[in-house]
């Protein structure tokens, strides 16, 4: 009975999360073919002979065509820049919520989380309307005279940054809020008492103590952003190269499953470091709790 409690979810997640990665790895090592499914088996059992045909060709292909390298690099760049902007906007928001009167904190937090509960797809879609050449953002900027002709914002990298920051902002604010709200206000008073100006207190006390939140929030934005597909598909332009889109096209348009699998495996490797960092920060926080 007791064993079953752990066994059922273990079996489910093992079968539907872990084994898929084994299959993914296997197929990334197989040869593409015009067949159903469109790849040749890696392990073959014929005439009593076991043949293992490991094929590194898909990985070699990824290094030969610059499209892939450039896409990985560009994904990491776009994700990193978006993460930075999310941090710059999210930190003051988290700080303000953590320092707000207690009875108002719940409401403010709920306002941060609420958009997350409404459809992500529909919220990204809303930006298409807002950023259009004759959309409200351009109209507003034209009316106050900042610009004299509409800016091209849709189908640019800028729109992708905006979409990522917008979508993942709650993931940045929540861990930041968690560390900032635990920060003992007496520490700030103590720093002031010992002669630190507010800015110095912030740099020497608040910022270092909220570092775990900064790292956790940044990783929670960065990791999904690297593999993002929907946001560049809706807001990005033909020049926006992101590896999620490359994988998607490889699979759905080229029907090259082995190369798509190889793209995915390399993406996992690229994300291994940020995932490891996130794990460490979260484990450290759990230990302290």
């Amino acid at each position: 009975m007791k064993r079953l409690v752990a066994l059922v979810p273990l079996a489910w997640l093992g079968l539907f999360f872990l084994i898929p990665f084994v299959v993914l790895t296997k197929i990334s090592l197989s040869e593409p073919a015009i067949a159903q499914p469109p790849y040749l088996p890696v392990v073959d059992w014929a005439d009593g002979i076991l043949t293992v045909a490991l094929n590194l060709g898909n990985y070699i292909f990824l290094t030969e065509d610059p499209l892939y390298l450039v896409s990985y690099f560009s994904s990491v760049k776009i994700a990193a820049i978006s993460t930075l902007f999310a941090l710059l906007l999210g930190y003051p928001m988290a700080y303000a919520i953590a320092r707000a009167p207690e009875r108002r904190r719940g409401l403010l937090l709920m306002l941060v989380i609420l958009p997350f509960w409404t459809s992500f797809l529909l919220r990204v879609y809303a930006w298409i309307g807002l950023l259009k050449a004759n959309g409200p953002v351009n109209n507003f900027l034209l009316s106050i005279g900042v610009i004299d002709q509409p800016l091209v914002m849709l189908q640019t990298d800028f729109a992708v940054y905006l979409g990522i920051v917008y979508t993942y902002l709650p993931f940045m604010i929540l861990p930041l809020y968690a560390t900032l709200s635990k920060l003992d206000v007496d520490l700030l008073d103590a720093a002031a008492d010992l002669g630190a100006r507010p800015a110095t207190t912030f740099l020497t006390v608040t910022l270092p103590l909220s570092l775990p939140g900064i790292v956790a929030g940044s990783m929670l934005v960065f990791i999904p952003a690297v593999g993002e597909y929907v946001i560049p598909a809706l807001l990005g332009g033909p020049g926006t190269l992101m590896i999620g889109s490359v994988l998607w096209n490889e699979f759905f348009l080229n029907r090259d499953w082995p190369v798509a699998a190889a793209v995915a495996i390399v993406m996992v490797l690229v994300l291994a470091l940020p995932i490891a960092i996130l794990r460490r920060v979260q484990a450290a926080q759990e230990d302290r709790a």
Binding site: L24, I27, G227, G244, A260, A264
Partner: peptide, 20 residues
């Protein structure tokens, strides 16, 4: 296994599950 899906890009989960 319970935390990994939280940090795995959707394209990877989708592709690997389909292959499975």
């Amino acid at each position: 296994l319970v935390t990994a899906p939280l940090v795995m890009p959707e394209v990877i989960i989708g592709l690997s599950l389909l292959l499975l």
